[in-house]
Design a binder for these strands. Sequence first.
DNA 1: CAAACTATTTGACTAAAATCAACTATTTAC
DNA 2: GTAAATAGTTGATTTTAGTCAAATAGTTTG
Lengths: 250, 250
Amino acid sequence: MIHPQHIAEKSDSHCPHDKKVSCGDCRLNTICLPISFHIEDIDRVNQIIQRSKPLQKGEYLFRANETFSSVYAIRSGAVKSLTISQNGNEQVTGFYLPGELVGMDGLADNCYTNSVIALETASICEIPFNRLEELSLKVPSLQRHIFQLMSREITQEQQVIALLSKSNAEARIASLLLSISGRNRRRNLSTNKFLLPMSRTDIGNFLGLTIETVSRVLTRLKKSNVLSVDKKEITINDMSALQQLAKGTE
Amino acid sequence: MIHPQHIAEKSDSHCPHDKKVSCGDCRLNTICLPISFHIEDIDRVNQIIQRSKPLQKGEYLFRANETFSSVYAIRSGAVKSLTISQNGNEQVTGFYLPGELVGMDGLADNCYTNSVIALETASICEIPFNRLEELSLKVPSLQRHIFQLMSREITQEQQVIALLSKSNAEARIASLLLSISGRNRRRNLSTNKFLLPMSRTDIGNFLGLTIETVSRVLTRLKKSNVLSVDKKEITINDMSALQQLAKGTE
DNA sequence: CAAACTATTTGACTAAAATCAACTATTTAC
DNA sequence: GTAAATAGTTGATTTTAGTCAAATAGTTTG
């Protein structure tokens, strides 16, 4: 079995030439752009996209309540989105990996409802939304593509809702790991060995569990040989057992 | 304080003339349609919308895995959306009230990921998506409106994610009640007295709680005089206490 | 390099919600 | 109108995850 992991990791990571990569050359364009897209259309999209210098870990991409202007495609690295709940606590609402879009929540009321923070060094494409909107009036397949991207965000969040309604901690953590694994498949990365970009605290916050529970569940899964856990490196040793756990015991 | 509740309830409920109501006359059009919309544009939308006979309680609007064709606006009544999780159990992913849209999850992969079932008799406008798509290429404010509707779906689901990550049962139930209360405000219905359209089982399933816990929490809130609960009729006696509970104790 | 800080793990104990079980109220079907 | 089925409530007990506390590992800073 071929593992194009190393090649992929290399082009995923930030390098000084990153900024010059056009959409036509970007490895992720099958995710970002409509499949049936003419060269000239790719070029039109390419022209409106802004590539700024990469975010460092902990830096904000944007903050909740700022005026909405752009959506952002993650090109490398990872980010988390979070809202400040009524009681003033942070609530992590999602993790976004390369090829995924953040900021689409900002459209509804013309301001972002989430803050987005880099979990590690991340290079990001900024897509000014009013220009994307204009272009999509002229290019029907682009309009459809944006609809689909937003729809996918909706379905993925529904999956998170289903995940969080699951009763037990093991099922939640197993589901999160499987989600990351599945998203790696799309990027031709290894599905059974990867680095978690987020801390245990972030995982716990996202899944509605305490950090202690996250730690204990990971230890348990390690002891039962379903996973190997070395700091942030996760190896899924028994995929079907993990899938079974994700289903919950009920 | 004026309560336009009775009038509203009346025009919300199904009556034999419902089918003839055009978008221009529909009480909910400020929710469904862009605000800055010309008469002729309203008419164009009106022409593509199909109004079928109302769904009875328990009937399906559509089922998961069916080919995507339309989005649906709830005109009266209420529906729930649900996915069948891996273990074969139903997972309620949302409740939809008049003026709200369902089916937008179907776009991503051209098939619905949820089934939608009427919680009570519901009249519904069917909006064939390919015709809406065509029209929105010609009417920029409509395209923007659809983007916004989808964005709102995303933000609302993020709120559900935040709600479910909350630790305790009281906070979840308080949040759900406040959500319904807030959605009633938009429709000019009473914010502190309403009928729950869904069963305790549906609430439990949605919130990741057992039916017993739902029942006990409602009893507790009744005893502490925050709510009056009479079967499905909820009266919020102490709104600020409920808001406090929704924040969680943490 | 050591000190300070942060992240993670582990253990003992507690609290909250699940489970199991019985019962009551409400709705549906005949 | 009564029986059967469904929905909801309440109580006793168990399980799970949370809380509190302490230790360890890893990272950052001067």
